[in-house]
Design a protein around this nucleic acid. Sequence first.
DNA 1: GCATATCAATACGTTTGCGTCTCGGATCGT
DNA 2: ACGATCCGAGACGCAAACGTATTGATATGC
Lengths: 211, 211
Amino acid sequence: MTGTAQCPGGSRQLGRPRDPKLDAAILDATLRVLADGGYTALTMEAVAALAGVGKATIYRRFPGKEQLVVEAVASLGEPPEPVRGAGVRDELVALLEAIRRKSDSSLAGKIFPRLLSAGADNPELMRRYREQVLDPRRARFVAVLQRGVDERLLRADLDLGYAVDLLVGPMAYRNLIRNDPRPGPELAARIVDDILLALAPRPAHHLLEQS
Amino acid sequence: MTGTAQCPGGSRQLGRPRDPKLDAAILDATLRVLADGGYTALTMEAVAALAGVGKATIYRRFPGKEQLVVEAVASLGEPPEPVRGAGVRDELVALLEAIRRKSDSSLAGKIFPRLLSAGADNPELMRRYREQVLDPRRARFVAVLQRGVDERLLRADLDLGYAVDLLVGPMAYRNLIRNDPRPGPELAARIVDDILLALAPRPAHHLLEQS
DNA sequence: GCATATCAATACGTTTGCGTCTCGGATCGT
DNA sequence: ACGATCCGAGACGCAAACGTATTGATATGC
């Protein structure tokens, strides 16, 4: 899965096998180097040194720097992050607050802004990151929001994807772009309460007479 | 302003003066190269070639690549962008829609995601960009929102900065991060209508019994 | 007219980093 | 035991790009 299968057919598993732990060590080192320094500051020498392996060991598994980063980003996957809040509102707050906390503490949070520019030149990189990291987290929001619709807390015809944008957008904006000063832990509840109010199941009378 | 004044006192304006048009040509070429390729793909040779000047002409004005990019980004400034919409709601829609359109057409829009990662390593760069480009646009939102408060369309105790985040956040999020597929021109009105609904001056009964 | 500073073009030294290769040693199957 | 493959360490060739220096031409002040 990670590297290239090198058995051409006849001679299978000849000689010393690859150490599986090194795959994880290389990918982890790649993420750490990527977190501080970004894609261009990431050098194969730095990854090799941090992982405690030789460069040849990396090139034996990955064709080059680009594929290494792509695989490393994809390996981020989805953390468990079990939100067992009681109600829809509190679960949304917990999910949003997780974004705020993770954005400057976790590896994924530090890597995120780097990928925004690297992804512009490397669509494959951005796609993998979106599928492996962003989409699973997004699905969590959608699931909770769906419960909100079922409980008549949200409009029945609500576009759930759009609702996620309304919630995550301001939080991501504050953390990525307008991150001075950094938002406090009260921001999540503030956003959720306001957005829930906007998406509450009330007659949309303001749409009938749009100015 | 742009380069370094080189007259130490005695000999003033001796020899051929610098061509002022070249300053603008260099900065403009820097922005164009920065727009496609990003900070690291930006080479002095490329800037010189695109501006039609020699490298020495650039180094005569800017100490190095870093300062060149900082000055170029700061030179973006604020476009006029006169929004003369009739009401508060329509002006907000126009401002938000401008963000969406600019994010993939204008120079500033293309440069923005590049700066997010470059700014992580270069705080000065991000600070100048924020002051010169982001803050002026933000002030426009605040001005319109203040009118909304005056017209009793928004809560009297509204945090205007937070309100801007609620509006700009989802739009920026859709354009920068979740830009597949790209949002359509109807998104701006959708966001504004929903956020205005959330921030309308109604008794905040849901805050009294939080949980 | 002459010194001085600018101009475009370009050669130059230096640094950096990718990807390959070599080396001695370690670890597997047979 | 033996060959094959992996391992860490690092030398190597190569290319890219920064910043400087040079060259011949051009423009300005005195």
